[in-house]
Simulated assay, not measured.
Amino acid sequence: MLHTLAWGSLFFPGLFALSTWALRRARPEWTYYDCLMISTRLVSSAQAVLATGSGIIIIFHCKDVVSDRYWLAREYVWFLVPYMVYDTYAMYLCEWYRTREQNRRDSRTIFRNYLSKNRLMITHHVVILLALVPIAQKLRGEQGDFFVGCIFTAELSTPFVSLGKILIQLKQQHTLLYKVNGILTLTTFFCCRILLFPFMYCSYGQQMKLSPFQVPFRIPFFCNVANVFLIAPQIYWFSLLCKKAAGLFDTPPAEKDG
């Protein structure tokens, strides 16, 4: 555990610092804030790739979805803890430099802006650290590695979300790449963050010879409650993505009239 925490504590801040340094060297015309923001998204994408890969490996190694064990299900959670702490600080650092470039240095204003702009993501990180980590590491006992692996694969959409934000930052919303990436974002988000939950219920039902409709009544009540809390923000974020996608392919009024 301690070794994994130590490696995570070195890997994510180190990758962030290296990415920022490399971007400053490669694009000296960019502001420091631009480099920081892109670096945070690169690190988020790297974490997402590692989490998704770990999840797929766990899923394929757990033939019995209830009792089979695989070491990555516990170790990657410890690797994820430093990322959550790093990402919370990185978001604040970005806000600090953004405000600094606007010549507003009041620390209270910066902190209020930080909380206001990132309240959903901060809440997400706090819930993971204070609730999901204890559940994944202790409270679930010796069962459920398969389902932990499934949760890890929810990160598959993150690199596409990050690329979309980078393209917006670089003012490339008009490009074909941005539109294709938008479609991939919606597809991966829907499959790995919405359909993931029916998949887990169906997998359990198949293991226990139950129909998917029987599963919610045969598993512990707190499992259903936990899944509701997990899927609720995903549905909200997916609705936001759909709204953006609806405007993505809108034809400008001038073109419609022409």
Rank of each mutant, 00 (worst) to 15 (best):
P212Q: 10
V81K: 06
R140H: 02
L42D: 02
A254T: 13
M208R: 14
F147S: 00
F147N: 04
P212S: 06
M121E: 13
D87P: 00
D87A: 09
Q137V: 15
F111R: 10
W78K: 05
V161K: 09
R218M: 12
R74Q: 13
S45R: 07
A226Y: 12
F249P: 00
C150I: 12
P28C: 10
T20G: 07
T185R: 01
L248V: 05
K138H: 11
I38Y: 00
F217P: 08
A51H: 08
W237V: 13
T251N: 13
C94R: 02
V77E: 02
T153N: 00
A246V: 07
F238W: 03
C94S: 09
R193W: 08
W237E: 12
T31K: 12
G149F: 00
L42T: 13
L156T: 15
R108S: 09
D68A: 15
F199S: 03
Y201R: 14
Y178R: 04
V148K: 00
S9M: 08
G14H: 01
A6K: 00
W71I: 13
I183G: 04
C223Y: 09
I56W: 06
R140F: 01
A131L: 15
L139D: 06
I235L: 15
Q47G: 01
I151Y: 13
N103M: 09
L115K: 04
R24W: 09
R69I: 03
A6P: 00
S211F: 03
A26P: 01
F12W: 11
W7V: 15
F60Y: 15
F152P: 03
F60S: 15
P13W: 06
K171C: 07
N227G: 12
I38E: 04
R119M: 05
T40D: 03
W96L: 15
C150E: 08
Y97D: 08
S44H: 06
S203C: 05
F222T: 09
R218W: 02
D250F: 02
L23T: 04
Q234E: 03
R108D: 08
Q172D: 00
L2E: 11
L240E: 04
L120C: 10
F11V: 11
R140N: 01
K209H: 14
I57N: 10
C150S: 06
L132Q: 13
Q207R: 11
V180H: 01
D145A: 12
C223N: 09
V49M: 12
L2S: 12
S67Q: 08
L120V: 15
